[in-house]
Design a binder for these strands. Structure first.
Lengths: 231, 231
DNA sequence: CGCTATGTTGATCCATATCAATAAGTGTGG
DNA sequence: CCACACTTATTGATATGGATCAACATAGCG
């Protein structure tokens, strides 16, 4: 494994506190792979053979049941996914596929568990990571159960613009996937964008412009306990 | 703190592997309290002063936003809640209230974090607990996004009856709360019960009878990756 | 008992899904 | 570099799941 990738991994909070020997041991079994877009990496129900780390590109986590499918999250560099399944040695609950050309590190789950057992700092870092993942999913559930689709979209747009501060930005994913992520159909998302026009939202292709953030905020009523990414 | 409670706590997987000294230290700041029904224990947004353990009774975890409210989960003995907030020292994402007369142990979050930092076994146990919580919420999200309310109810009933195996059982909560938990209104739940009659479900008050489990299963299509409590 | 909260049922409304048609991108190979 | 094919996005028409409102029944509980 090239040194540059090693350093990228070590910069992750998840690995940065580990003892050097343990980190080395973990890297020994690791390998890096480049994938083209739209490649299935894992399927829900599979045994958790590897902990995955996205170094470049992006990955869609999605779920299926009875012919239906929904997008759960997007993983962007540099972060891991399916950590819970790896440490529990339980089947993946989500499938994953690349959205674009992506570079992924694969760490054998068994190594992860072994080293987790003997490196306290690593175990504690995993706690932090899992707690954050857990809280994200809880926030997402609140979003789904307490808000209408129009409110979910409004808050999503505020979160996206909030991170940049600019009144105008590009959607980071296809509208089709955004719809699925927000728990609606593509048709309904189209209409929801129309529905936000009175609150100062203008859409041109994938470019979003928020002309009156106060107006939109009044409508969306964002909450620290649902919409804050950090904490 | 009475010895019997101590033992109950120690029997929890979360604490059973700890070094005795650390467990003792954790118990030193702990105290037990008895609450009547319908008492608010914590409110979302509060600082996580205590990790809570339910010894007896039951606790409702719920969330509010903009005048709406939804039930997220029920905590039954013996288990903990709001572990993620405690270890992260981040505000509670959910409120909690007793459903019935309940005995709760309160462990100062600061002690939890201190001991988590020096007891590897404890840290690893927390990982297991959090991973399980995380997976539960993911399953719940799949249930919400991939199924209609009728399907959610059908699967809920199968899960409840499955754990006993008996064709007839009592609902463990008010229908009002069940509706909220499943993401629907009480009226809609009433009609959903009617809607499951063709699949062999009979409701008499809070008693549910499943006359033809195969028929119901064909409709509900339960999945290991959504409906399995374990793993 | 009688009060109050819960549950049921019916009527209606609304949000969202579905179906269908078209338009607009996007990528590919000639 | 363009033409074609294919996917995505939009728009309209309609259907439907689920919410809301209202009335009433029922069941706990003081």
């Amino acid at each position: 494994m090239p040194e540059s990738y090693r350093q990228e991994l070590q910069s992750l909070k998840l690995f940065s506190g580990m003892e050097k020997d343990n980190f080395d041991a973990l890297m020994r079994g690791a390998y890096v792979q480049n994938f083209p877009p739209r490649i299935d990496l894992i399927s829900e129900g599979d045994a958790p053979d590897f902990l995955h780390v996205v170094l470049a590109g992006s990955v869609d986590l999605y779920c299926s049941w009875n012919g239906r499918e929904t997008s759960m999250a997007t993983v962007r560099p540099v972060s891991t996914f399916i950590l819970a399944a790896s440490v529990q040695n339980a089947p993946y609950l989500m499938s994953a596929r690349t959205l674009e050309k992506s570079r992924i590190v694969l760490l054998p789950s068994e190594d992860v568990r072994t080293i987790f057992d003997r490196d306290g700092a690593f175990a504690r870092a995993i706690v932090g990571e899992l707690a954050q993942c857990y809280r994200s999913v809880v926030k997402n559930t609140k979003d789904l159960k307490l808000r209408t689709s129009l409110e979910r979209l409004a808050n999503y747009l505020l979160r996206q613009s909030g991170s940049t501060g600019a009144p105008s930005f590009e959607l980071k994913m296809e509208k089709r996937r955004l719809a699925s992520f927000l728990g609606m159909t593509p048709e309904n998302l189209s209409r929801a964008f129309r529905g936000l026009e009175p609150y100062g939202v203008t859409v041109t292709g994938s470019r979003i412009e928020i002309t009156d953030a106060n107006d939109l905020t009044d409508f969306a009523k964002p909450s620290r306990l649902i919409d804050d990414y950090a904490s």
